[in-house]
Design a protein around this nucleic acid. Sequence first.
DNA 1: AATGAATGAGCATTCATTCAT
DNA 2: TATGAATGAATGCTCATTCAT
Lengths: 205, 205, 205, 205
Amino acid sequence: MRKAAKALTGSRTGVGDKRSTILRAAIKVFAGKGYFSSKVSDIAREAGIADGTVYLYFKSKDEILRSIFDQAMEDFISEGKRELKDVSSPPDKLSKIAGLHLEKLGSDRDLAIVFQVELRGSTKFMREFSAAGFADYLDIIRATIEDGQKDGIFRDDIKASTAAKIFYGALDEMVTNWILSEQSYELAPVANDVISIFLGGMLRQ
Amino acid sequence: MRKAAKALTGSRTGVGDKRSTILRAAIKVFAGKGYFSSKVSDIAREAGIADGTVYLYFKSKDEILRSIFDQAMEDFISEGKRELKDVSSPPDKLSKIAGLHLEKLGSDRDLAIVFQVELRGSTKFMREFSAAGFADYLDIIRATIEDGQKDGIFRDDIKASTAAKIFYGALDEMVTNWILSEQSYELAPVANDVISIFLGGMLRQ
Amino acid sequence: MRKAAKALTGSRTGVGDKRSTILRAAIKVFAGKGYFSSKVSDIAREAGIADGTVYLYFKSKDEILRSIFDQAMEDFISEGKRELKDVSSPPDKLSKIAGLHLEKLGSDRDLAIVFQVELRGSTKFMREFSAAGFADYLDIIRATIEDGQKDGIFRDDIKASTAAKIFYGALDEMVTNWILSEQSYELAPVANDVISIFLGGMLRQ
Amino acid sequence: MRKAAKALTGSRTGVGDKRSTILRAAIKVFAGKGYFSSKVSDIAREAGIADGTVYLYFKSKDEILRSIFDQAMEDFISEGKRELKDVSSPPDKLSKIAGLHLEKLGSDRDLAIVFQVELRGSTKFMREFSAAGFADYLDIIRATIEDGQKDGIFRDDIKASTAAKIFYGALDEMVTNWILSEQSYELAPVANDVISIFLGGMLRQ
DNA sequence: AATGAATGAGCATTCATTCAT
DNA sequence: TATGAATGAATGCTCATTCAT
């Protein structure tokens, strides 16, 4: 995860890190003006390189967007797996997931904007995106809930996949509202409320 | 609401109804190819009119998208208010809202696609959109929850506005998953699960 | 042939004649700077229209070049057939063909340049071009020679198709040299020399 | 001619022969995709060197094309002069020329393609090219014909320069047809037909 | 009101060429 | 000599919008 993490963090970029620099620049530019309004030359300027250089690292503007998603998702999922290793109870796992989800996006507003807004702009992208890492993510949540149902601590009159979507949808809306909000507040703490309501509704009795 | 309702239902368009025809055509076209890929001439063709005629009814392509949202939202909110008039208990109100939300979008897939995908494509749009009817909608949910908290049937250790977002986010994700899903299933029934978990988490005791 | 003839002659273009105007402009521009160096905007400026308008009449820059060829070829072949109707002896036919060939191109230097130079710039184009009207042209010559062979006035120890290429090649080189020549001279009269040598070599005895 | 001859034959390239290697590579690449579609990096790859290295031997892509022509022309003319030394009768000389012309190009299809197609792609190039070795070539033919006219074996009612173009044009078309032909046949033997007709038309009586 | 021909600004991408190593 | 990463100028084409009819 080292490399991936560095990738989107953009760490004072050494020589071979031009790819990361471009990615960071793109996140900033996309977040600021939107994918369609952003010109490749905006990204290049932000990254401090020539327009053509972008194409030495990415095949197209489209691929840049896709790479932002892939990189961040890979990042997030591997970080998540590591953090979840020691947690065994399903409720605790969900808490951890909610926390990570909101911390991650709450600590990188530009990335959050790209995720919540730009990545949703086309069915085409949504499908690929859903087909890719996103489905994996939803599946981790689903599996956790299913475990809880098998253990008997979660009610099982609701399909785990439906419950997973509810959980994810709630988190997702927290992020969307946060980025659109005029006031600035900490996103991470909100995880508690989501968990509290969700578990309240799912825990047996 | 008369006009609005007819507008997006688009049936039996009378003589002066060209505006509605265009709006319906736009929903279909946007849903099919996405806002950015859709050309004004596509909409005109779908509506059976000349390109230039579109501009007699709308100032710009952008305004068409905005109008779709406004019209549908106005539609939905007024219909919602009417239906909620006779319901007084907050839990029942929320059930009604969830039901209407999923029925409405579940019965108009094209509109749902435009709502879930195309309307999210730009921060610019998201902000205006959030400023407009969307905030009203979220506020109705919030107020209902607040009522429940005042009545003492809902826990009040969670801010009503947060709970409202969780509720809305869950519903929203149901719709998004539905339009992206390869299998076709009924959307409306899912409302029960959302309500069940949400109330389970919010009802006192 | 009426229409076609007018097309590349550009006759003070009435309303619907914009296509011809563009074609004439393109011939002039291509002849002046070469196909690859010519920008679509050069053609538009020469034609007195906006860049985009070009695309209302032609699908691409490439198609403009192809159209110049098609139009001129159609023109030439139909004119040729008409003129050859009354001529029956093979030698006279060849004389007529040589005369028309050099008159046609000799009276439209820009068109000649496009034909001799720009149309030869790529194997791709050469093949299509050869497949199209050009092959027809060569075939008319071949058939004429074959007739002469059957009549016994032309020697038949040389394949008609080879003789046709020799005849065509000689004419073609006359044109190429003419357009590259620094001195200006009349092209048409040269037809006599070509005919004289060719017939000298082909006529029996 | 030594160097030149080796240059375009490109075989057994010794150490300092990188220039020839590049030239051969360019001929192959140009023949395959056309001058404009060929990238300098294609040539470099074909030659097995780095892009930048090309520029140590040639000033520009354009110069590569020019060099191919110059090299081959120098090659051909000096080879021709050598071969023609022992031939004195004008008809025999022309036979020799025709034979060499078609043998040379008939034995190097890639080179032939570059000569017949790529070198004709621009008036600019055509002019330089005509100014250079090409004019020399045509002049050798002209002089030979003139000799025949002085000797009284060729008719002199046709200008030698015109007759030369006819002769050259016929040969040139043989080559063009050969490279565009779908069937593969030997090019060299066709020289006989050209000579036969041409001499038939030029020899007195 | 309606038309649809005309407009022209706007942009992703390519690729010949350079130059620091 | 050789490299190949970096450059940045250059352009065909699209399409929202206008406006004369």
